[in-house]
Design a protein around this nucleic acid. Sequence first.
DNA 1: ATTCTCTGTTAAATGTTTGTTAAATTGCCG
DNA 2: CGGCAATTTAACAAACATTTAACAGAGAAT
Lengths: 218, 218
Amino acid sequence: MQNNNNPIQIEVPEVVVQRLPIYVRVLSQLLESNVEVISSHQLGELLQMTPAQIRKDLSYFGRFGKQGRGYNIQFLLDELRQILGIDRAWKACLVGLGRLGRAIINYPGFSPEGFEIVAAFDNDVSQYDSRLGTISVQAMEEIARTVKAKNISIGIVAVPSNQAQSVIDTLVENGITGILNYAPIAPFAPANVVMRNIDPVLSLQSMTFYMKENEEIN
Amino acid sequence: MQNNNNPIQIEVPEVVVQRLPIYVRVLSQLLESNVEVISSHQLGELLQMTPAQIRKDLSYFGRFGKQGRGYNIQFLLDELRQILGIDRAWKACLVGLGRLGRAIINYPGFSPEGFEIVAAFDNDVSQYDSRLGTISVQAMEEIARTVKAKNISIGIVAVPSNQAQSVIDTLVENGITGILNYAPIAPFAPANVVMRNIDPVLSLQSMTFYMKENEEIN
DNA sequence: ATTCTCTGTTAAATGTTTGTTAAATTGCCG
DNA sequence: CGGCAATTTAACAAACATTTAACAGAGAAT
């Protein structure tokens, strides 16, 4: 994925990076429940993982625990958030205001985590006001201008499959470096762009493989 | 994930299973474009994978290719669909008819792939008709009865986080063996239940790790 | 002080991907 | 029509990556 020619710093496996947000979430919940310290063993129980894996994962980034005691949750949380880069806000734009796009724009889970959708684009804008709450709604042609003007770094793609790749290309051309793609395609992007796909159908299709096996056993 | 004590059959890695639906999708597209045969090399190009990996993946399940020629797309597709268990229809129910739930129910991507939402449940059903198209809309209390009556095997969870685990428990109690969970939690389920989580925030949070690095380079 | 707990680290085990080679198939050329 | 070169899989082996286990040492508790 990313090249790291620095011989000092060890490359962190991508799987590990993908687990960090899960730690962040659980630790946040624990903190809300006024738990202050947790051991890798307890955390493993909670997340159904081995304590060894948790300790190994964290050790890629530093020494956050205290022997004989465990991890201070507040401290670990702060560190993890900084490591992930979620200790600050990120500006995103949404492309596509169909049913899916509108659900995304109304999804209340993004902004508490610092992901703010500041602009939305669609082919047919006539049906909308020029602002949806604090979000400006514009024609596709405005992507270039707005992304640069507002210094947006994340693009959320919710257009039909046949338009998705060209939308992605446009976003990338205009400096977007992270794309959350909801279109059911295998998208291309340059290596310096981080792509994440949300595709429930693929999830279901790999799910049935195991369900089928269950049925055969019964 | 699944126990397989059969000493003859080799355990297929889960990563491999998760790639199969991607193959299915690309192969379907190729078939629509009237391509009949494809080599692992060409497929690898298309999917940005090594040909070796594609061949290895497929070889877990059988010998589908012809040396000197490649894979017959129609044949491979039929085989893969059978392997994944997507050569037949699966009945699903949706729990939660908030904005997210309504977007899911209207998502046109499920039924062409054989996943049919046949029932939907919500705490407050008063706002809906008893049917939404062909889908029966019922109170949560009806989950048990309806899941059994309609022989539903997949549950799609789109309720608020604080209700998600108890909904999952209910679904599992009533014989659901596959759960597609949209709630941002780390859900528990017995080992014989297949769980897939759709969580855009986690995706974004692991994305920023790499975007942050990019910025530091610039 | 001594015992118990729990991390960070190293080593071993396990899992996954890639490279290589033999064998099968195709298409071409004489 | 037969042989030869080009292709491409399937299988095996090697390289690489990730997870788990084990343990020394630091800290806490008694």
